[in-house]
């Protein structure tokens, strides 16, 4: 049984800071107005919350690696009615938060292994949370590689984190864009093509993959060709969600619900779901 007290009624949080990331993507920093149960807000990397924009509705969004005291942030792309309404909000405005929900990344199971991240576009949002966790506990993991693709250089997310990671010892980044602009001197092409070129460890390695379905399928093919086992590929899925607690069933996929059984799945699990991702 869950110990969360906000499963139905959201807790109120205040926007403390808003940061523009890329076009139509912003990061919002929040703090809770008062935890009713007196417990600190704790969650695991890979989990998500349901965020209410008052007067517009509620949406699911993935959480960062860990809270900073009772402060946390959410990176949100403007895609529908509710996220657009959130983008209209200013510092000091209120939102409602329910959660954290979902299973989170299985860090305990992958201790000591090499970690590869393959992200397409805003697929980096949930993966960043995992990357930051791994970077904070770097001694527990082997090599760490990031393969990142975006449509254009302007759409590369979290430049400030990227720069920091690039500078970190033992962290390898490979970045590509589909449509380069003048002045872009990096790789071009889809992200899965990078995998072929790079020197990738396969043994004792776990790959985290997140991105749009077309990119996902191409990357999976590349990874399995390289010899990755189905259990060694981990992804986080996205679905239309309404309740977050396994009741409304909008996020059902195969015999599982993304909100309670996921959102983190191994590729073996995804394959047996028998549905499009």
């Amino acid at each position: 049984m869950s110990e969360i007290n906000n499963t139905t009624i959201p807790e109120i949080a205040t926007i403390e800071e808003i940061k523009d990331e890329i076009v139509e993507v912003k990061t919002f920093y929040f703090s809770f107005d008062g935890r009713t149960d007196g417990k600190p807000f704790t969650f695991k990397s890979g989990q998500f919350v349901m965020c209410t924009v008052f007067g517009a509705g509620e949406f699911a969004v993935s959480l960062p690696p860990s809270p900073e005291k009772d402060r946390f942030h959410l990176t949100v792309r403007k895609v529908g009615k509710v996220t657009s309404a959130l983008h209209e909000l200013k510092t000091g405005d209120k939102v409602g938060i329910r959660g954290p929900f979902g299973n989170g990344f299985p860090f305990d199971d992958i201790k000591g292994k090499n970690v590869i991240y393959v992200a397409g576009g805003i697929g980096l949002i949930p993966l960043r949370s995992s990357i930051m966790h791994v970077m904070q506990n770097k001694d527990k993991f082997g090599r760490i590689l990031l393969f990142l693709g975006a449509r254009t250089p302007q759409e590369l997310m979290y430049q400030y984190n990227l720069n920091e990671w690039k500078a970190a010892p033992g962290f390898e980044t490979h970045i590509t864009v589909d449509n380069p602009v003048p002045g872009w001197d990096g790789e071009t092409g889809f992200v899965h093509t990078l995998l072929k070129k790079a020197d990738i460890p396969v043994k004792d390695t776990v790959a985290f993959v997140c991105g749009p379905p077309v990119m996902f399928n191409a990357v999976i093919k590349e990874l399995t060709d390289l010899g990755f086992g189905e259990d060694c590929i981990i992804s986080t899925l996205e679905r239309h969600m309404k309740c977050g607690i396994g009741k409304c069933q909008h996020c059902s996929i195969g015999r599982t619900l993304v909100c309670t059984d996921g959102p983190v799945y191994t590729y073996r699990q995804i394959k047996t779901l028998g549905e499009q991702i």
């Binding site: 949406f59 509710v82 749009p212 909008h250 549905e275 991702i277």
Partner: peptide, 25 residues
Amino acid sequence: ADRMRTWDSCSYEGYSRMAGGHNPR
């Protein structure tokens, strides 16, 4: 505003459609 719950059906096309338009089902 109110928060309303209303019966839904998995036969509807909009049931599983995500914001942004992708519909896995």
